[in-house]
Design a protein around this nucleic acid. Structure first.
Lengths: 204, 204
DNA sequence: TTGTTTTTCATACAGACTGTATGTATGTTG
DNA sequence: CAACATACATACAGTCTGTATGAAAAACAA
């Protein structure tokens, strides 16, 4: 037997890197979500991931860079979930699709990892500009796409999409935070759904 | 002459405290607005204010407490400005008043001190909960009041005010940040105004 | 294989920052 | 003026971030 000294199976560099990156992301995510960026030390993250700060600073430029990676991961997940909810909900007119998307977004934001990281921490840690830049690739892009589709199909009158998308996103973001605060109240959820549905309808 | 040794006129304790508090607030505000809470050291603030960290930690519990004071100051100023704009704009129906309030809010957010401190930093530094708690005393309270008035006067159908107020505030906040980014573009401002006006109209 | 280079990670360290403890000066009160 | 309270400055301890240096592991070459 050639490998009796090593209990660990040999791994490729890419596997090693991927493993520690994932461990760091997985460890950082709940910590950031619960305590916020400023109150989580690099050491706490590395420890939780079972590595040292050395490994972390090798994989990421700095703490902010690690946060950015977590942020993108969460964004990608959410847009995936929302996209799936919209796509898998059968045929419907543009406005109905938007309502379903909004509801899926509110669902996703139930998780603290989502609303705290995406909506509260990220703008301050990365700066609003970079925040929206990334958001454009994900959620904001999705909304803008649906709006354009709605305008093409005539469900919504033609108008500048970007400002409208921003205002809509803002409304949805705040709605999500409001719901996160009421912590699962059925009534609050119904009320918010009603407000959001009326808002979407008003676009037509 | 009894006071020839002292060039400084004697001041009461209250005056001394008030002076250093104001100096600290005035110094901290632009620093927070430009660099964000995390990147401004207590020493930088104290130096800019012409005092030492000792004085600062005597007047405020910690850096967060100082930020909270700045935040409240800015909030109070903004609500004052928006309130004045609405009150001093002559008689009008409820929806028109709301549109004027929204426009005044967008104006106020032109200043970085306003949008950066109130909209970007505060939620992360103070936590969303405390942020909204203070906001309720100021801007959010104003909106809620206007909504209630609009419902009483029949301009808006009766419905739960709190969630609606949150959604509206969210839309206005994001609109303000969007505008802050476009940095004074007349066209962007017109487009946002149009979106916001349509949004308010859709309430009726 | 063996030697060499590159990548991954750990440890040691320097600088910065926060909050506190302690001492001093300045008002306030009896 | 004596006794005290308040306002502030300085010194210090602990924590944190980011970097520099060295070791282990993998990739590569001969």
């Amino acid at each position: 037997m050639k490998n009796n000294r090593r209990t660990q199976a040999p791994r490729t560099q890419a596997q090693r890197s991927a493993a520690t990156r994932e461990a760091l992301l997985a460890a950082a995510r709940p910590l950031f979500a619960e305590h916020g960026f400023g109150k989580v030390s690099a050491d706490a993250i590395a420890s939780a991931a079972g590595v040292t700060r050395g490994a972390m600073y090798h994989q990421f430029d700095d703490k902010t860079d690690l946060f950015a990676a977590v942020f993108e991961q969460v964004e990608a997940e959410v847009v995936e979930r929302v996209g799936a909810a919209v796509a898998g909900s059968g045929e419907a007119d543009a406005l109905t699709l938007m309502k379903r998307g909004a509801a899926a977004w509110l669902d996703a934001c139930g998780e603290p990892a989502v609303h705290r990281i995406i909506l509260v921490e990220a703008p301050s840690v990365l700066g609003w500009e970079r925040w929206r830049e990334v958001g454009m690739k994900y959620g904001l892009g999705l909304v803008q796409g649906m709006l354009e589709h709605a305008m093409d199909s005539g469900a919504v009158p033609k108008q500048p999409v970007t400002p409208l998308a921003h205002v809509l996103i803002g409304a949805l973001d705040e709605a999500a935070l409001y719901l996160a605060r009421t912590d699962g109240s059925k009534r609050a959820r119904r009320e918010v759904d009603a407000v959001v549905d009326r808002l979407v309808d008003s676009l037509g």
